[in-house]
Design a protein around this nucleic acid. Structure first.
Length: 552
RNA sequence: GGGCCCGUGGCUCAGCAUGGAUAGAGCGACGGCCUUCUAAGCCGUAGGUCGCGGGUUCAAAUCCCGCCGGGUCCGCCA
């Protein structure tokens, strides 16, 4: 709804979007007068006043109420029709509220951690950003496919495979068991450089399609993925498909990429095969094929993106900031050969207080450990409560806290993981939003207990709105506006912040707006607001992959 | 050394793309609020040279230049 208001404001001034902004002084504000004042050398204040009077004579806007000029700013306020239509739209559309009608297929690739061990808390940031974006894209109307690109041909995987082969697997969860063998193999590798040849050999045979070796790799990769899928399931992250790198070697896409590069004249075949970096303003040539004939990560990734180009109009990758250089090279190469580059969301690293994480050196906090500890902490909180389904609630609170903590931080921000912070739910965080939702549910439950209230009886009356209610409803109206921003900016943290605001604003309302004990007209009016809030919070939590509890 | 990212109260962050009206939250600290819809809540107080220095502008946390601090990348690794 807010988007329509903004459109009207834009139309009323006939100005660019950038001169219209949200403000604490109004529902929307324009700074266009300053711009005109500069161009014409006139007084901004007078221009604003003139523009306001013009808008007033124009009349006939559906949602614009008061318009005023103050110090050169033009302040717009929504009218009662806007408030009424917002509430009506929320109640009518219910689960659908907030959606947009954008169309098209989108591929979102996220997580894609190497199959050499369990996910750690750095991967989690990737998964949560990716999964949240996928949910928001779906809400916006896109047909979304989420994909996990499995790096089964890399050197790291070969080390893991060799490790498992040499040392076997312990009884641990399979991904953790593989990590043990992988870490041990790395230690051996440091001591004994002869093992280097074995790695090289096994990689070569895998790439060449040796059935026995393929079986070994398949076994290890499947074990890791089994563990990874279980971990992700625990935090409500789902992938529609898993695509192996080796698929692109076996289906000929890697060869097609070589042909294309060759035709474009940037492939140098001289021992190793490489891209002529000078043609693309790269610092160095990019190696695509080792002298022994095996390919490298970027080679398969180019093939993968050729494949994506043939299938999706839009594809988005979620990648750690350490992939920035290779991501840029990938994009530049794709553009050079006339293919579309991916849209890439980079996020900065999650590190531990003692330094950066490393699966290879066993220096990491696994996602499983974090999930488990967070759950235990949530259970402690419920220890003394008398209620049903403690485990279910604790799980929802734990997953919520975890997901929210990651998604609320802007992707470009470096994070230092802190146990104390991660396990503290007594903060304005996911549980606060869940709690607000439960409060709204509680009011509605009680309202319905004594008498069955039908939709027709719930009557929202804009003229009854207090200032707090008005502000709150305008916030509710911004749902799809925020969705649109996330789609444009690929920053899901914006949505987390929005939902936080809605919860906070609802608590303001809750404080001094009694619902159940109010007289009939006001009671029905406020029930409509409470129900609308409930819908917005529930739909919003869904987009964050967090369960909207009705009691807690 | 070069590229990219970050630097906002004691701590964690929002705001920066598109400059604009007194720089916003949470945690922590301090003081209050449960006979009234869930206190996982609410109210109040203290706490800020927006890393530093220049510049552009009527106006800079926001744009430009330089510097400092932290992270990250610069493999026939991924």
């Amino acid at each position: 709804m807010f988007r329509f208001f903004k459109e009207e404001v834009k139309r009323s001034l006939n100005c660019e979007e950038k001169f219209i902004r949200e403000s604490e002084h109004s529902d929307l504000t324009s700074t266009i007068s300053f711009k005109i004042a500069k161009e014409k050398g006139e007084d901004a204040k007078k221009i604003a006043e003139k523009l306001v009077s013009e808008i007033k004579t124009k009349g006939e806007f559906s949602y614009i109420g008061k318009v005023e000029a103050i110090n050169g700013y033009i302040n717009f306020f929504v009218n009662n029709t806007f408030l009424a239509e917002t509430i009506r739209s929320i109640l009518n559309r219910d689960e659908d509220y907030g959606s947009l009608d954008l169309k098209g297929d989108v591929l979102i690739e996220h997580t894609s951690a190497n199959p050499d061990g369990p996910l750690h808390i750095g991967h989690l940031r990737n998964s949560i950003i990716g999964d949240t974006l996928a949910r928001i894209f779906k809400k916006a109307g896109f047909n979304v496919e989420t994909q996990y690109y499995v790096n089964d041909m890399g050197r790291q995987t070969a080390i893991a495979v060799l490790g498992v082969n040499k040392f076997g697997l312990s009884e641990k969860k399979p991904d953790h068991a593989v990590a043990e063998a992988y870490i041990r193999m790395n230690e051996e590798l440091e001591k004994n450089s002869d093992l280097e040849k074995e790695i090289e050999e096994i990689m070569k045979r895998y790439e060449d399609g040796d059935e026995n070796v393929i079986r070994l790799f398949k076994d290890v990769v499947e074990k890791v993925l089994e563990g990874v899928i279980e971990t992700l399931k625990n935090i409500n992250v789902h992938h529609d498909s898993f695509v192996l790198e080796s698929y692109f070697v076996r289906n000929g896409y890697v060869n097609r990429i070589f042909d294309i590069l060759d035709k474009n004249g940037i492939l140098i075949k001289n021992g190793a095969w490489k891209i002529d970096g000078s043609r693309l303003q790269f610092e160095k040539d990019v190696i695509l094929r080792r002298e022994n004939g095996t390919t490298l990560y970027i080679t398969r990734d180019l093939a993968y993106h050729l494949w994506k180009n043939e299938r999706y109009p839009r594809f988005i990758n979620i990648l750690g900031a350490d992939h920035k250089l290779i991501g840029k090279q990938l994009s530049d190469i794709l553009k050079f050969i006339g293919l579309k580059p991916p849209e890439i969301v980079f996020f900065e690293f999650v590190s531990l207080p003692e330094g950066s994480m490393s699966t290879r050196r066993g220096k990491f906090i696994s996602a499983d450990e974090l999930i488990e500890k967070t759950f235990e902490e949530a259970m402690k909180l419920l220890r003394d409560r008398d209620m049903d389904e403690k485990e279910k609630i604790a799980k929802a609170v734990a997953v919520g806290a975890l997901r929210f903590d990651f998604v609320k931080i802007a992707p470009e921000k470096h994070m230092v993981f802190d146990w104390k912070n991660a396990l503290d739910f007594e903060r304005q965080t996911a549980s606060y939003i869940q709690y607000s939702h439960a409060r709204a549910c509680s009011i509605l439950r009680k309202a319905n207990r004594n008498e069955e209230i039908t939709k027709d009886e719930v009557r929202f009356k804009p003229e009854l709105c207090t200032d707090v209610e008005r502000k709150h409803i305008i916030l509710l109206s911004k749902f799809s506006y925020i969705i649109e921003r996330v789609i444009n900016e690929l920053r899901p943290n914006i949505f987390a912040e929005y939902l936080m605001k809605v919860a906070s604003s609802f608590n303001d309302f809750y404080r001094d707006h009694p619902v159940l004990n109010a007289k009939e007209e006001i009671r029905m009016h406020r029930l409509a607001i409470v129900d609308s809030t409930r819908i917005v919070l529930r739909n919003g939590l869904e987009l964050l992959g967090i369960e909207a509890l009705e009691r807690m």
